[in-house]
């Protein structure tokens, strides 16, 4: 790892002024993606700005029909939160499947979605639940947030402060973890709301995406059988030593079916 200067500002304004206009300065959250990348010298920066001392970025709260999760909330807190369990149990379950317990003690919501790893779990919930990403400058709808491989709508110097999740009628997440890393070989988040059904897919493509054919079919009937005959085209999907594009395409449909089943069971509780 190349050396850098380390800063730990106590306020959001101070953090914003430290990174403003500087593309060699990087934000640090849980460090579970950034530090391994720095260690392998895949990236190098002159300065790191640690968001760990900014209390305004931490915590989970319910605001009417939305669940607000601070950017610096570690995965482990989402797993253990009674508020999350009451409002969106599927989100707690998803967080509980990220990496391993030691990763979950450090890694954060904001870091995960800013990183936009194609195989990360949280992006599926953000897109599936039509969440809103709140930054120090504006609010970004999930549909406009994830742009491509490790690419988001965040502008240089922009800091995620929280994510606002509308509470669904029912939701579930099913993933096929890559056995060594636990990242999603493919993962599907299904959510049923008053406005319709959303199905978001991670791990399969260069970026999280909506499976709109499945959404339309499930809007008519929220039942795994509604997906009979629906297929995902492998064109443009990821292909690597772990799985071919065709295999991932087939996984997506299977996982979508399972997620619908799980959401129905959870809803019937």
């Amino acid at each position: 790892m190349y050396d850098f200067s380390y800063h730990k500002p106590a306020s959001l304004d101070e953090a914003a002024s430290l990174i403003s206009g500087r593309d060699d300065v990087k934000l640090l959250a849980g460090g579970m993606s950034l530090i391994p990348a720095l260690k392998l010298r895949l990236a190098t920066y002159s300065d790191l700005v640690d968001l760990g001392a900014i209390d305004a970025l931490k915590g989970i709260r319910r605001e009417g029909n939305t669940l607000v999760i601070g950017a610096m909330t570690p995965h482990a807190e989402v797993v253990a939160s009674a508020e999350v369990e009451r409002a969106i149990p599927a989100l707690a379950e998803l967080a509980g499947g990220i990496g391993d317990p030691l990763v979950r003690n450090r890694g954060t919501m904001g870091g995960s979605i800013a990183n936009a790893d194609p195989a990360a779990d949280y992006p599926a919930s953000v897109l599936g639940l039509a969440a809103t990403v709140v930054t120090n400058r504006r609010e970004i709808a999930a549909d406009q947030f994830f742009l491509g491989l490790f690419e988001t709508a965040l502008k240089p110097g922009e800091i995620i402060t929280a994510v606002r999740f509308p509470i669904p009628e029912a939701a579930a997440y099913c993933k096929f973890p890559q056995p060594a890393s636990r990242f999603a070989l493919a993962g599907v988040f299904v959510a049923k709301t008053a406005g319709g059904v959303r199905v978001a897919v991670t791990g399969a493509g260069p970026s999280v995406f909506r499976f709109k054919e499945a959404e339309a079919a499930l809007a008519k009937k929220f039942d795994p059988a509604a997906l009979d005959g629906i297929e995902v085209r492998p064109d443009g999907l990821n292909s690597d030593i772990h799985a071919s594009a065709e295999y991932r395409a087939s996984c997506v449909v299977v996982l979508a079916r399972r997620a619908v089943m799980k959401a129905r069971e959870a809803g019937a509780r």
Partner: peptide
Amino acid sequence: KGVKSCTVLAAS
């Protein structure tokens, strides 16, 4: 809390 100390900056 349990952490991987190879992925935490000493300065933090």
